[in-house]
Design a protein around this nucleic acid. Structure first.
Lengths: 167, 167
DNA sequence: CATTTAGTTCACTAATTATTGAACCTAATG
DNA sequence: CATTAGGTTCAATAATTAGTGAACTAAATG
């Protein structure tokens, strides 16, 4: 594999590590993104990343469980293949949104525990409302995008891009 | 301190730990939110959290550096006091948005490294455009909110402010 | 100048976690 | 049935990191 691709794989490893995956999972995902193949076997991933079977085993499970990667099996072939998930683009964001909601709730709970009203309680209240709003707007944005403003899944029809209506 | 507040502090510790702070920093922030005092000294925090000076020292620096907490000093008093930051509500979100932008760029870079067009490259492109859009919309939302759609900072209008005179 | 106050710094401990590599498992194949 | 392919599991290692506590510093106070 060429140097650019190898360093992309490392970059991807570091990026997803920041998001809470393991570095190895980030590497594997980066590899799947750029490897120009429809699906890649367990052992091909292991070799490309120069890692142990144990590590790839855990990594593959993690990526499939979080929905970032799809496992693919083929008739007459006992290997498992992997590829970047065909899920909708918003799926990853939805998880993040739940953090905003949890934050909003944490702030409101904090406010309710206070026994006086002060600038901090006002801040708690406003910030909670803000993140609640952020969450709602993001859900709207995802729904709008996924409802066809942009084509998403391979749908076996002709790819014609419909223009987005102005918001 | 009552049990509810103590467990809120722990809950806050765990929450912010998930966001990448230390557990102690999350505890401190939770404590500042609910402690019903205008500002709290280093040693009061240390005592409330039953932690070491070293830990609170690092924690206080971290919270002030990330803008979540303001340090306050008073004339004729050599202690440093801390309180939940008076920054605008969007400040914390802005940092998160930069991750969406970084993600979008990572995906586009991945696409550019591919030597063929396939479903994965379409996915890379669309997902990149989606997160770029998410980022833009969030910036708009923050600007709108902070520009006065909702009151944010203690301004110099009708809100009455209390003077601190502690010693 | 000596003491006190308010923190800072740092070596160490404790805890967690990713990765390895070898042993193990199980379904398919010879 | 024995072997092999394709993983899974787990004990051990490596690496990172939070928190402690004691030694230290710098500024204010007596």
């Amino acid at each position: 594999m060429n140097t650019n691709k190898l360093s992309y794989i490392e970059e991807s490893g570091l990026f997803f590590e920041k998001l809470g995956l393991t570095r190895m999972a980030g590497r594997a995902l980066g590899y799947l993104m750029i490897c120009d193949r429809d699906a890649v076997s367990f052992d091909e991933i292991r070799e490309a990343l120069d890692a142990s079977k144990g590590s790839i085993s855990g990594t593959a499970k993690m990526l499939v469980n979080t929905g970032l990667v799809d496992a693919v099996s083929l008739p007459g072939d006992r290997k498992t293949y992997y590829r970047v998930s065909r899920t909708r683009v918003g799926d990853m964001l939805r998880q993040r949104i739940s953090m905003f909601e949890a934050y909003s709730e944490l702030l409101l709970k904090g406010k309710s525990l206070k026994s006086r009203t002060d600038e901090t309680s006002e801040w708690l209240d406003e910030t909670a409302r803000f993140y609640s709003r952020v969450s709602a707007e993001l859900h709207k944005l995802i729904d709008h995008w996924e409802s066809g403003a942009q084509p998403v899944k391979s749908d076996h029809s002709k790819k014609k891009k419909k223009k987005k209506s102005k918001k």
